[in-house]
Design a protein around this nucleic acid. Structure first.
Lengths: 367, 367
DNA sequence: CCTCCCAGTGGAAACGTTTCCACTTTTGTA
DNA sequence: TACAAAAGTGGAAACGTTTCCACTGGGAGG
């Protein structure tokens, strides 16, 4: 039992040729009842299982799909991978996971390796879809793939939030609450086409609402000194009353930093986040944000690759403009309503019903 | 370029045998400078890359490791997978990911499939290490593995939090704050050896501190109606002043539900969580919790399998009792200090320094 | 000058499958 | 009863590698 049994062992024990064993076990081609019985018996006693490696070599197919994302530390990607993995599992495919840490070099290497391993397809979030070497390599090799969270430059499909128009919605929300001077806060701005899209959409939305062009605060590392950076930023742009953070974690951290600077949220500074992670609605004040459904997107992207692999009709692609929804929250309050004592109570979370309605819509989309 | 080039194509183009190509490219065995040049040139123009499938069949090794966890929706597992994946990547291994959704049947099937795919090893979190069919199968097949988050029943090593003694620490914290009557709140209590360990540890700790045996509230699905359940629970156990939730998400949800029941946290009810997720320190009141380092554990488990695969000395195993630390927070307050107005301010998060110190210790352990 | 050794090389077997093909036996039909 | 078709079966090739082995030369040491 050291070395696992091979099809030859089974054939020998059943007293037949390997071809027969293969036919019986795969239900391909004819076999007598007697043979069937003997083969099955042999399989039983030897605890035989096909080697997928041998199979793959012969069939030129691995039933494995590569999944490339920046990091699982970000729950958005974690959820998306979860969704994709479930889709693959249901279809009998395995998931080969790589985290690139937002590093294009690692991304490229990983893709090369996965192709060498002969994955049947890819679901991936590259750092920049227009320039990604890895993506070019995949296209050149003609391996099926589906983008996730990237804004596809060409005619490829991509399961992603409509970053640009979602960011516009954020601008609208600020405008409705009479904010005029705002800032945009982003991590990894250089290496992420997502962050850039959001910034551009936000700038466009602000312009459309007749607001001042938002100032940009770009931070490098994981916000150790976010408080200092925020302080400097607000000193340079003293009239800012609202900040759009490019993800919810950053938004929560910003709230914390604002407090450390003795600023009240939303009294002195309103904050809007992006992603709609669950805890955003558990904190006080609750976080105003763009709600997305990463798991649904991951599952969609997964089904998309599967459909091109198996030549089946692709899954319904959600209307990009419905891929997100705005969730009101206590971290965003109208400007000039800033009485210091009672205002806090007045600006508390609006109807939680709204929240639930919105997420419900998202859920329905995923069916 | 439709079909990728094989070693034969390279050999033909370089005018030599396949053996020579293999030797040159793998730097094994001798080769003349001229041959080396010609082979390399051929590789260049054909954009040749070894097929890992062919290689695996020959070498009986796949440089792939199976990673089996309950779900990526839980950031604890997501972080752990991230850590393991990084370790594998650095060592030139790929990660084959499966999420079991806490389902032992899926767990078993997944493990079978991964073994058929000839993974070189496993890192896994099974639902119950003592009874897991899948785990038995792995042992029978003699595939290297390392447990993660499970409490190993036998002599296997497992990278996990010392759930039992961590839960004792929680009891100590309650005792220090004069709480006597407490409850334990858990998801998936039946199917998770972790939750059971925590409960047992908590019970033991309470007994040791002369407290009442804690009541158990077990919830099934993802806390849609947690508020109702909590209400009933507190009605049945009206003297409870503190609740230990088996993870931070649950703890945050409990805080929210308590508020919905018009209870003040920590004024009327103290809460302690488990895991130490980042947002726990961003909310108000901040969450008292057991801080763990899932990424470090995942990386450790990853390095452990690698060490048994490559027959190298295993990584230092952290002292189980140092695998966690208690983080004070505003959600836990001394009993009988419950003045309704000013008490809130008084019970705000203790020194943030403590927080930072604790996590720092964790970080050091991971090196 | 003869050996011996070694660098350099290619042929071929082996890894575990699937599948084509050829062969034998059974079944059905006239 | 004879013949064709169909069912049942096994041998062997192919998939892309690595590696063992055998075969050349040529240089060094006697």
């Amino acid at each position: 039992m050291r070395q696992p049994a091979t099809i030859k062992d089974v054939a020998q024990r059943a007293g037949c040729g390997v071809a027969t064993v293969s036919r019986v076990l795969n239900n391909t081609g004819p076999a007598s009842a007697e043979m069937r019985r003997r083969v099955l018996a042999a399989v039983e006693v030897l605890d035989f299982q096909f080697s997928e490696v041998g199979r793959s070599l012969q069939s030129n197919t691995t039933r494995t799909i590569g999944c490339v994302v920046p990091s699982l530390a970000n729950p958005v990607y974690a959820d998306a991978v979860q969704g994709a993995q479930e889709a693959f599992q249901r279809a009998g495919y395995q998931t080969l996971l790589v985290c690139t840490n937002y590093n294009p070099e690692i991304e490229f290497q990983a893709i090369r390796t996965l192709i060498a391993k002969q994955v049947d397809g890819f679901v991936l979030t590259v750092s920049d879809a227009e320039t990604s070497e890895g993506l070019a390599y995949i296209e050149n090799r003609q391996v099926p793939y589906c983008l996730l969270f990237n804004t596809a430059p060409g005619d490829q499909i991509s399961w992603s939030v409509a970053d640009h128009s979602a960011a516009k919605t954020v601008a609208d929300a600020f405008a409705e609450n009479k904010h005029n001077d705002t800032g945009f806060l982003a991590l990894k701005f250089q290496s992420s086409d997502r962050a850039r899209q959001r910034y551009e959409g936000f700038v466009a939305g602000c312009a459309q609402n007749g607001m001042i062009k938002p100032a940009l605060l770009e931070i490098d590392e994981d916000s150790q000194n976010l408080t200092d950076l925020l302080g400097m930023f607000l000193q340079e742009n003293p009239d800012i009353t609202g900040i759009f953070a490019s993800n919810d974690f950053l938004a929560l951290a910003t709230i914390r930093s604002a407090r450390a600077l003795a600023l009240e949220v939303p009294g002195d500074l309103s904050i809007i986040g992006f992603d709609g992670i669950e805890v955003g609605s558990m904190v006080e004040p609750s976080l105003a944000t763009i709600v997305t459904d990463p798991k649904m997107l991951g599952a969609g992207a997964g089904k998309s690759v599967l459909s091109v692999i198996n030549q089946t009709p692709p899954p319904d692609f959600p209307d990009p403009d419905l891929s997100f929804s705005f969730r009101a929250g206590g971290s965003l309050a109208p400007l000039f309503a800033e009485s210091s004592d009672d205002g806090k109570v007045a600006s508390f979370p609006p109807s939680n019903d709204l929240t639930q309605t919105d997420t419900h819509i998202q859920q329905e989309r995923s069916k």
